[in-house]
Design a protein around this nucleic acid. Structure first.
Lengths: 131, 131
DNA sequence: AGATGTCAACGAAGCCCTTCGTAGATGCGG
DNA sequence: CCGCATCTACGAAGGGCTTCGTTGACATCT
């Protein structure tokens, strides 16, 4: 039985999820500190707390309450969330064509050659496996 | 210079923009009919009207009022909007790496071989210009 | 002209997201 | 034990998005 589908995270929620994916399970304080580090004058502590409480209600994160400072854990992996966001965007703005999104992504910004090579390998796999 | 950055369109606004890009400049009635066709029981006429009025204020569309039924025109091309959406997503969820987004896009859905070939040509161009 | 239909323009309501102030519980150092 | 720091919880405010009812202007058909 897989998971009921999680809602699309908002921008603020995604910022928090990024911290959780990078640091691993964390308390509100730890998340808040991390966010403050990358953006001073960002958001206050209680704002982050409230956000994370709502994310718990939505099922985006889980909470271990056995300690006084609750520990939060993302319920979806980074990959899975990325996949969801991408398919969303493909459907909403690219007429359902992932390749068109991919091309737009590559044209717009400079990409490191190593990543291009990796992408090429993926392409080989995809083209090889058809028929 | 006149290109002030346009705000990121919401889901509803994007749906309207898609119609305008596909049909060309249109009246509210034409947009509403198109939306209703692809999603019956979607939104009412006045809802679409209001949305498009707000989009005008935001600068997402322009309006020709010389006819009784105003004619709306997107202020950014589909390409440019796609580019903006992609870079946004790359920054918010892919640590700034367009290639990782591209790979996620291709892994998640089946893509037509013809599009893969096109993508490969783009890759050739990008890698070619590096030496 | 009068009836009917179409249009833009508000404005209000409902919901969600974000922000923060405040209160109450809990742990900790003296 | 008392005071201080830290934490969760709660609620309210503000703004943005979406929805729709209503109104008044304008056109069309008879």
């Amino acid at each position: 039985m897989s998971e009921t589908k999680l809602p699309r995270p908002t921008d603020g929620e995604l910022a928090i999820l990024r911290v959780l994916w990078a640091r691993g399970d964390s308390t509100v304080r730890e998340v808040h500190d991390a966010l403050t580090r990358e953006e001073p004058e960002g958001t206050g502590y209680t704002t982050v707390l409230k956000l994370m409480q709502i994310m718990t209600e939505k099922g985006l994160v889980e909470r271990d309450e056995s300690q006084r400072a609750h520990v939060y854990r993302p319920r979806a992996t980074e990959q899975r969330t990325q996949r969801q966001l991408v398919t969303d965007l493909v459907d909403r703005a690219f007429g359902g064509s992932p390749a068109r999104l991919a091309m737009q992504a590559l044209s717009s910004k400079k990409t490191r050659p190593e990543e291009l090579a990796e992408l090429r390998r993926l392409l080989d796999t995809l083209e090889g496996g058809e028929e």
